[in-house]
């Protein structure tokens, strides 16, 4: 009981921070239509089950080309689950079942004749914890093109291009043959981004890409995301509302609704809008409560 005053004072500060951050949103000058004009990917009535557990309920989301879409929400709201559906990574989870459609280039990637491996060559993914392979920096980048059988004229050029694309080239150009594990956490994460863009994907999915990084490394990755937006479409899951406000064009807010009988929490999409609207003028009470720090 004695801690209550402290909590409420924290939430007041949070609210102030969020408000000011939304105000200084770095891309407020970017003019975007209210809805993605030509979505590069679209989830339709997406439902995900893990065994009997209904993890995500009826998500409909369209991701715009060359935009950064952030998916935010409290723990267990299904945002990472939705992200993993977009390149069929949920196939690797035992007992996972996906219903509905994920449209990509007018094809449902969950259609029967679709090869999940082919899907993943077009839709790259960066994970929460940097996960470079136990190989040299060079071989980490070359891995994707090699395994997918990409036609490469000069692998050295491709490696350089990918590392430059991830703003890592200058830091590693003299130690390409050294183990990737010698890099710092932030460098490793940018290496993972470089590794992903080496296969020249359409979309890059990022699952809390900065949650294991310090603020400086986080800032560099965020800068990188804004640069990559020119060539790629990025969908990012983040716990960090300030990050969503800083980098994303659109924000999807998810929450978890407990089932009345079982108590299992099923994730659902509450609101999806331009990031500036979500943070300054949310239309749903639950979104407002979340971004102002009243829950989650």
């Amino acid at each position: 009981m004695s801690t209550t005053p402290a909590t409420s004072s924290t939430s007041r500060t949070d609210q102030g921070q969020i408000g000011s951050l939304a105000g200084v949103h770095s891309d407020s000058d970017r003019e975007l239509p209210a809805h993605p004009a030509q979505p590069v990917m679209e989830a339709k009535d997406l439902n995900v089950f893990y065994g009997d557990f209904h993890a995500v309920h009826d998500v409909n989301l369209a991701y715009g080309r060359n935009e950064i879409t952030a998916m935010i929400g409290p723990s267990g709201c299904g945002k990472s689950t939705v992200l993993r559906c977009l390149n069929r990574m949920n196939d690797l989870v035992a007992g996972a079942r996906v219903e509905g459609q994920v449209m990509y280039h007018e094809q449902d990637i969950y259609a029967k004749n679709v090869d999940p491996i082919a899907v993943r060559t077009h839709i790259g993914m960066v994970f929460q914890k940097p996960n470079p392979f136990p190989k040299s920096i060079y071989d980490n980048i070359a891995y994707g093109p090699r395994v997918t059988g990409m036609k490469v004229d000069n692998m050295d050029d491709l490696v350089e291009e990918a590392l430059r694309g991830a703003a890592l080239w200058d830091e590693v150009k003299d130690k390409l043959k050294q183990s990737a594990y010698g890099l710092s956490g932030g460098q490793q994460q940018r290496l993972c981004i470089a590794r992903t863009i080496a296969t020249k994907p359409d979309l890059i999915l990022m699952d809390e890409p900065c949650s294991a990084l310090d603020p400086i490394a986080t800032a560099r990755v965020e800068d990188l995301m804004l640069q990559l937006r020119n060539d790629y479409t990025i969908i990012v899951v983040t716990h960090n509302m300030q990050q969503a406000a800083r980098v994303s064009d659109r924000t999807a807010f998810f929450t978890a609704r407990p089932d009345e009988t079982t108590g299992n929490r099923t994730g659902l999409l509450v609101e999806y809008d331009l990031t500036s609207n979500i943070f300054s003028n949310p239309s749903d009470k639950r979104t407002e409560d979340y971004i102002s720090g009243r829950f989650g």
């Binding site: 993943r120 790259g124 993914m125 470079p132 994707g144 395994v147």
Partner: peptide
């Protein structure tokens, strides 16, 4: 997971 996500 990293490897599968690269299309391996």
């Amino acid at each position: 997971q990293g490897s599968f996500a690269m299309g391996a």
